[in-house]
Amino acid sequence: MTTIALPTRSHVIADAVTMLNRNLLHVIRYPGLSLFTILGPVVVLLLTVFVFGGTLGAGLPGVDPAGGRDAYLAYVMPGILMITIAGTAAGAAITVAMDMTEGITARFRTMAISRASVLAGHVLGNTIQAIIAVALVLGVGLLIGFRPTASPIDWLAALGVLALISFAVSWIGVAMGMQAKTVETASNLPLILTILPLLGSGFVPTASMPGGLQWFAEYQPFTPFIESVRGLLLGTDLGSSVLFAVGWAVLLTIAGYVWSMVLYERRSVR
């Protein structure tokens, strides 16, 4: 009777680290996609602050019109960070789709490698890229006048929230890459994630939106993501934002993992 040895936990971790190293090397060899992920949010940040910021900032509750641009920079920065994280999902989707279309994933299936680790390598690599991108975009924000009031503990909490969101979004990006039939399709699917911060509290308060859109903006995942980061960095009222942010991140992680593994197993039996 033939037995099949299941991978142990240590083997799964070792395989995931190997796949992570592979993905990080891929980033180094092809930096263009990562550069675009950073430059896009930076352009949006500069455009909204220096072109529209004076007017939009003056309309924020309790803001002196004379300081509208600075106030809007503080308000919009968390939304820009969410766009940065959402943008990295496209990179994950494209990388996965390339592996699928070029037959690399099929080759991995024939090797003694944990299937979960193949996808986990993409997720961990993309999460690291997202954190680096967030740090660079945040650095640009600081250069143009963003001044957070966070304590060291608040900074650590904000970093934890950003890392958790990046991890969750990376799983969704990997799943979208598995779902896509071509690399071109994989680059388009994650656009919905980039739009969600715009349809939340990233650029204007949700109270200023019409009824149906306001309801959607308040209950979609990126609004508690944004409000959590805004509250931790700027001292605004957190309320239950962090609780909802963590809940949404966990839910998206589970959904992305299950979606990815179902597609991986389905293609493995073909």
Rank of each mutant, 00 (worst) to 15 (best):
V12P: 14
G32D: 10
T37H: 01
V42W: 05
V49H: 02
F50A: 03
P61K: 00
P65I: 08
R69A: 12
Y72H: 07
A74M: 12
A74I: 03
Y75R: 06
Y75C: 09
P78N: 08
I80R: 07
I83E: 06
I83G: 06
T84E: 06
T95D: 14
M98D: 11
R109T: 10
V118K: 06
L119I: 09
A120R: 01
G125I: 05
L138V: 05
L138E: 03
L138S: 05
G141V: 08
P148Q: 07
T149R: 11
A150Y: 05
D154K: 02
L159A: 15
S166L: 05
A168Y: 04
S170L: 02
I172T: 08
A175P: 07
G177N: 06
A180F: 01
T182R: 04
T185F: 06
T185P: 01
I192V: 14
P197D: 04
G202F: 04
M209L: 15
G212H: 02
G212F: 11
T223P: 10
P224D: 11
I226E: 12
V229C: 03
L234E: 11
V242H: 02
L251R: 02
T253S: 15
I254H: 10
I254M: 10
V258D: 09
W259I: 07
V262E: 10
R270F: 06
